[in-house]
């Protein structure tokens, strides 16, 4: 902080970096956060399956509902990423994987609105497991549903 003579070159460098990095994809973090909630529901479904203790089924219902809402925000931000030219093109594989997980989870939200055992076993926990596999694939692919224009420019 005391050697102020180092500031001007650093500031110049940072603003140069910002022109690239500030254009980061807005949707990615929300897809990750929503996906994490949906994956957690497999855990709470499993505990309900083992114990039949009602509160775990309620946790699942809330995790799936909030996970879907956060995922939906991510999809809206994906549109904004394209509208604001942050995103260059769709990552088709990641998009299909996350869309499939989202649709299965929507179905799962309805299954989890049933009362007691059949809200989880057997269809609910099966849907949670399928979504989890898909979401882990999306995680391995970096949660992003599009290629960013910035990175595209650099290649």
């Amino acid at each position: 902080m005391s050697n102020s003579d180092a500031v001007p070159p650093a500031a110049t460098q940072r603003s140069a970096v910002n022109t690239i990095l500030v254009r980061r994809l807005l949707h990615r973090g929300f897809i990750a956060a929503g996906g994490a909630l949906l994956i957690t529901a497999l855990g709470t479904d499993y505990v309900y399956f083992k114990t039949a203790l009602w509160q775990w089924a309620n946790f699942s219902a809330w995790l799936i509902t909030t996970g879907l809402i956060v995922l939906l925000v991510g999809v809206l931000l994906l549109l904004i990423d394209f509208a604001t030219r942050r995103a260059a093109r769709l990552d088709v594989v990641s998009f299909i994987v996350v869309a499939a997980a989202g649709l299965l989870s929507l179905l799962n939200a309805f299954v989890h609105s049933r009362d007691a055992w059949t809200s989880v076993v057997p269809q609910g926990i099966s849907l949670s497991a399928l979504s989890t596999v898909l979401l882990l694939i999306a995680a391995a692919r970096g949660w992003s549903l599009a290629k960013s224009r910035a990175s595209g420019d650099r290649t």
């Binding site: 999809v75 549109l79 394209f82 509208a83 769709l90 998009f95 869309a99 599009a146």
Partner: peptide, 8 residues
Amino acid sequence: MKAASFRA
């Protein structure tokens, strides 16, 4: 690309 998301 927008159209694809919209369709989804």
